[in-house]
Every structure is written in structure tokens, then in C-alpha cells.
């Protein structure tokens, strides 16, 4: 099934959890925040969150800024 992450389409297996999906992004120790369909998903809920067809995921972090 298809989901989008930061507006890029991705194919994921049905039943994939958000935790598995994030782990697959190989972020290392990068601190991120995750939105699913415009709602923030707290870290402790990644495991319990199962992706669904058409989900819009946003993964953001801190970059240099003023």
C-alpha cells in the first residue's frame, strides 16, 4: 500500500507500524517529530500506530535558523 512521507510516495507492507517505518528511514540518532495526517504522534505511540493506505507522514527535525 502507498503512503507519503514529506510529500514523497512510499510503498509499505500492510500492517507496518510507524516505529518500523521510522526505523527504515535510517535516521540514526536524529531527533525528529512525526505527524500523521497533520496530527503529531508522540514517540511513545510509534509502536502502537499502524500505517494505513494514503497516510500522510511528515518527519521534521531542527536545522540552522534565526
Amino acid at each position: 500500500m502507498r503512503v507519503s512521507v514529506n510529500d514523497e510516495a512510499r510503498e509499505v507492507a500492510p500492517g507496518t507500524t510507524l516505529a518500523q517505518f521510522i526505523a527504515g528511514m535510517k535516521l540514526g540518532g536524529l531527533r525528529v517529530a512525526v505527524e500523521r495526517n497533520f496530527n503529531i504522534v508522540p514517540r511513545e505511540q510509534y509502536d502502537a500506530t499502524t500505517l494505513e493506505e494514503g497516510d500522510r507522514i511528515e518527519v521534521v527535525t531542527f536545522v540552522g535558523g534565526g
Binding site: 514529506n6 514523497e8 536524529l30 527535525t61 531542527f62 535558523g65
Partner: peptide
């Protein structure tokens, strides 16, 4: 101050600000 931006999905080799 820091800015909030999308994680770069294609290039994960870059160093992180933090």
C-alpha cells in the same frame, strides 16, 4: 534559535545541526 524543517529523505549522510 533553530528552525523546524523536513528531514532530508534522500541524503542521510549529512551531519546534523544538533
Amino acid at each position: 534559535t533553530v528552525a523546524v524543517r523536513r528531514v532530508n529523505l534522500t541524503d542521510r549522510s549529512k551531519e546534523s545541526l544538533l
